[in-house]
């Protein structure tokens, strides 16, 4: 800004105080989660609470929680679902985004606007009929139910279409004249140029699918097939009263992967949200 909103050091100081205070509120629950996961239960429930573990750091809580509930398997299920869904999003969105952006074919505009319309429908309306569909297909209590219906993304198609529209047309015309076909042009010329958009899409998809909860809750009830968010709810139901340390250790394991990926690929998360405002919703 040409004209500063904050004019003197005192105002800047107040602004920092506010920003740091809020930052503390944003981070404290994570800190509390981690610290509680290495405390004994008795220290979590004492009042007033202490900030750090008093006797010793109980790393064994992690081993214990992995032993008494199948949260290890559930983490793997989440990972499996997340990888498949992310690959699916990227592949189908690249293909559809390119077709919508670059290939003139009849019906393209109508299909595209209908596709965007799907974003306006709340997921809740699909819960019941999707469950019934899954039961007809025999996919209730199968990981397929968490993967196959979610391989497509209107958001991703939109994002990739925008990315492809931003590239010069001449690139492709040159390739087509040289005898390459559309597929060659797409994979050899266009895809490498939209890697940033693909990375954004992949991070958003990762987030969305790792954190998904409502649909798994409805369609998976076998505890060996549950995803980690469901596993956490079970953990809370079993040990929420007696072993908070274990519940917190489970939470750390469920939250850690997204935090790590966020730290590594922050730029893409923030760009994904800033550019479209649809990610993670």
């Amino acid at each position: 800004m040409a004209q500063a909103f904050l004019r003197n050091p005192f105002e800047k100081f107040l602004a920092y105080l506010l920003l740091c205070g809020l930052g503390f509120i944003m981070i404290f629950p994570f800190f509390y989660m981690f610290i509680s996961s290495v405390k004994p239960h008795a220290e979590i429930v004492q009042f007033p609470p202490a900030l750090l573990p008093q006797a010793s750091w109980l790393w064994s809580n992690y081993a214990e929680v992995l032993k008494i509930v199948p949260i290890g398997t559930q983490l793997l299920n989440s990972a499996m679902v997340t990888v498949c869904v992310t690959l699916g999003w990227v592949i189908t969105s690249v293909l559809a985004g390119y077709a919508f952006a670059r290939i003139p074919f009849p019906g393209a505009n109508t299909l595209f606007s209908m596709y965007l319309g799907t974003l306006m429908v709340p997921f809740a309306v699909l819960l019941v009929p999707m469950y019934l569909l899954m039961s007809w297909l025999g996919w209730v209590d199968k990981l397929a139910a968490l993967i196959i219906p979610w391989l497509f993304s209107a958001y991703g198609t939109f994002l990739l279409r925008q990315a492809f529209l931003g590239l010069p047309k001449e690139l492709e015309e040159a390739a087509l004249i040289d005898g390459a076909n559309r597929w060659g042009a797409l994979f050899r010329i266009y895809v490498p140029l939209v890697y940033p958009a693909i990375a954004t899409l992949a991070t958003i998809s990762f987030l969305y699918s790792w954190n998904s909860f409502t649909w798994p809750l409805v369609v998976i009830s076998n505890k060996e097939l549950k995803v980690v968010t469901q596993g956490l709810m079970d953990l809370q139901a079993l040990y929420g009263g007696t072993r908070l340390d274990l519940v917190m250790a489970g939470s750390v394991m469920a939250v850690m992967p997204t935090l790590m990926v966020y730290l590594a690929a922050q730029r893409y998360f923030i760009e994904g949200v800033a550019s479209s405002g649809m990610g993670g919703r």
Binding site: L22, G23, M26, I27, P29, F30, Y32, M33, S36, I44, L207, W210, N211, F213, V228, T229, L232, M233, Q236, G240, L244, V247, M248, S251, A254, V255, T258, L259, V261, Y262, Q266, F269, I270, V273, G280
Partner: peptide, 21 residues
Amino acid sequence: SLYFVPVVASVVGVSLVWKFL
């Protein structure tokens, strides 16, 4: 980046922590 951290964390995971807070 700091204010964005809660956005990326699993709703269930953070809700359990808030439950204890």
